[in-house]
Computed example of a mutant assay.
Amino acid sequence: MGNRVEISLTEDLLSTLQEEHYVTIATVDAETGAPTVNAISWIYAKDKQTVRFAIDCRSQIIKNIKEEPLVSMTVIAEGSTYSLSGRAKITAELIEDVPLKLSMIDLKVSEVKDVMFYGARLTAEPKFEKTYDEEAAAKLDKQVMNALMK
């Protein structure tokens, strides 16, 4: 069902992005001007127009957004692939009550496009597992997600 375009998240995508989910974010590299893609998982859709995420405050993503705030996020969900485009804004240089040095960014969604190629449907979504201490990962995930939900 490719090429469907919306101006905000659908109810299904809103629900999907209210839990930790694997997504990629494309920014413009501040040094080279080339597109660059990173995978992230600490993400939370506040509403149909705002997707909030957390990343290490030393990440190149932060520098890129400061230089060029237009970004694109790829979400694989609901049997398809979606491109969320909009303007990113750093809302907290350092998130309080989280032991890691993380920044919080809000993506103001201006376009949601179903970019799945014609005549196909995904039968499985990407899954990931944390490869460090399971208990520590769960505790950290809870702290970060609580901060994103504020």
Rank of each mutant, 00 (worst) to 15 (best):
L13C: 02
L14H: 04
L14N: 03
T16A: 11
T16E: 11
L17D: 01
Q18S: 03
Q18L: 00
Q18K: 06
E20C: 08
H21K: 08
Y22S: 12
V23F: 02
V23D: 00
T27A: 07
T27F: 00
T27Y: 04
A30F: 13
A30V: 11
E31C: 07
E31R: 12
T32R: 01
T32G: 08
T32F: 03
G33I: 04
T36L: 02
T36D: 10
V37Y: 04
V37N: 10
V37E: 07
N38V: 09
A39C: 09
S41T: 14
S41F: 05
I43V: 15
I43C: 02
I43E: 01
Y44M: 04
A45P: 01
A45V: 00
K46Y: 08
D47N: 11
D47F: 00
D47L: 00
K48C: 06
Q49S: 15
Q49E: 15
T50K: 03
V51S: 03
R52W: 06
R52S: 05
F53A: 05
F53Y: 03
A54C: 05
I55N: 04
Q60R: 12
I61P: 08
I61G: 07
I61N: 13
N64W: 05
I65A: 07
K66C: 07
E67F: 14
E67L: 12
E67D: 13
E68D: 12
P69A: 08
L70K: 13
V71W: 01
M73F: 03
M73Q: 01
T74D: 05
T74C: 14
V75Q: 00
V75E: 01
I76S: 09
I76N: 02
A77D: 00
E78H: 06
G79P: 00
G79S: 00
G79M: 04
S80E: 13
S80N: 13
S80W: 09
T81K: 15
T81M: 12
T81D: 08
Y82G: 02
S83R: 14
S85A: 15
G86H: 02
G86L: 05
G86N: 09
K89R: 15
K89L: 15
I90P: 05
A92P: 10
A92L: 14
E93G: 09
L94K: 15
L94Y: 13
L94G: 07
E96T: 14
E96N: 13
E96M: 07
E96F: 05
V98E: 01
P99W: 00
P99F: 00
L100V: 07
L100W: 11
L100P: 07
K101V: 05
K101D: 14
K101F: 11
L102W: 00
